[in-house]
Nucleic acid binder design. Structure first.
Length: 271
DNA sequence: AGGCGTTCCTGGGGGC
DNA sequence: TGCCCCCAGGAACGCC
């Protein structure tokens, strides 16, 4: 599923193709694809249609114009890629962006959960998200303060985008396994040493995954490559297989409503 | 406040 | 082979 590294990978792939492009129109195929705007209004509101940057905030792809931003959230199955205007639209196209250069940006989404947002600035997105885990100023103290002061299930907290932005089910399980913390631990009972470890592991795992173009299989038409971090997963998806650290069998349980992979020998429950 | 269930969606897998 | 049911989960929302 697209989490921070996968969204960053999409941004890295698209950015060079989109910088300087001038947006002509966005055509919705799935009627609900626009979250907060009528299609006709987008063209009318935009004084300046040239893309000046493509970035990421949380799990949003931010397409920046002089006076507006368009944000895309891929949710579960969304894909965003450039395609030749001569090719027919893919079966599950939710919307497509047309540019003056005749390039076409496809928003492909089997399960139709993905949405397109339109704002004056990034502030509405910023204000409902926690800090970026890879930001330089996101140090151990900032991290610990965020979690030690609350009394909540650690996995639920890590998944909560208002607390910390960008993590999803895969990277939460991987980070907790690497840190020896059971996902059903209560946040204020986890010792400081473990928070230091968790902080380091989150940064390391996300950074490593971005280097490998993420985990999700992403079939970009620009280069046809898929995410290689799938080969690095230590616990996610390894039900009944041996733990890579202690050879205990990995269990699949349910935590915070999500399928959760855990080694009950390596991961201590602070409760 | 926070945990939990529901909703949105479709493809894929298990069971029979 | 076919059919039904359940599962996958990011985020918003309602309820208790």
């Amino acid at each position: 599923m697209p989490e921070l590294p996968e969204v960053q990978t999409v941004v890295n792939q698209l950015r060079p193709h989109l910088l300087g492009e001038r947006l002509k129109s966005i055509t919705p195929i799935w009627p609900k694809v626009f979250h907060n705007i009528k299609n006709s209004k987008i063209q009318k509101t935009m004084n300046e249609n040239m893309i000046i940057d493509v970035t990421r905030r949380a799990k949003f792809i931010i397409i920046e114009f002089r006076d507006n931003i368009i944000a895309v959230h891929l949710r579960m199955t969304g894909k965003l890629y450039i395609q030749s205007s001569k090719k027919p639209l893919p079966k599950y196209t939710s919307a497509y962006f047309s540019f003056e250069s005749a390039k076409v940006l496809i928003f492909d989404d089997v399960r139709k959960f993905g949405r397109i947002y339109f704002y004056k600035t990034i502030t509405p997105i910023d204000s409902r998200h926690g800090p970026e885990p890879l930001a330089d100023n996101f140090n151990v103290d900032a991290f610990t303060n965020l979690f030690k002061t609350k009394r909540r299930n650690i996995k639920a907290l890590l998944l909560d985008q208002k607390v910390l932005a960008g993590l999803g089910n895969i990277y939460v399980d991987e980070s907790l396994w690497a840190s020896g913390i059971h996902p059903n631990s209560i946040s204020n009972l986890i010792p400081l040493k473990k928070y230091a470890l968790l902080h380091m592991n989150i940064k390391k795992i996300l950074t490593d995954s971005i280097k490998k173009n993420g985990t999700t299989i992403i079939d970009f038409s620009v280069n046809g490559q898929s995410g290689k971090y799938v080969n690095e997963l230590k616990v996610y998806g390894r039900k009944s297989l041996n733990c890579m650290s202690c050879l205990n069998k990995i269990k699949k349980i349910r935590v915070a409503g999500r399928g959760t992979y855990v080694c009950t020998r390596c991961q201590r429950k602070y409760k």
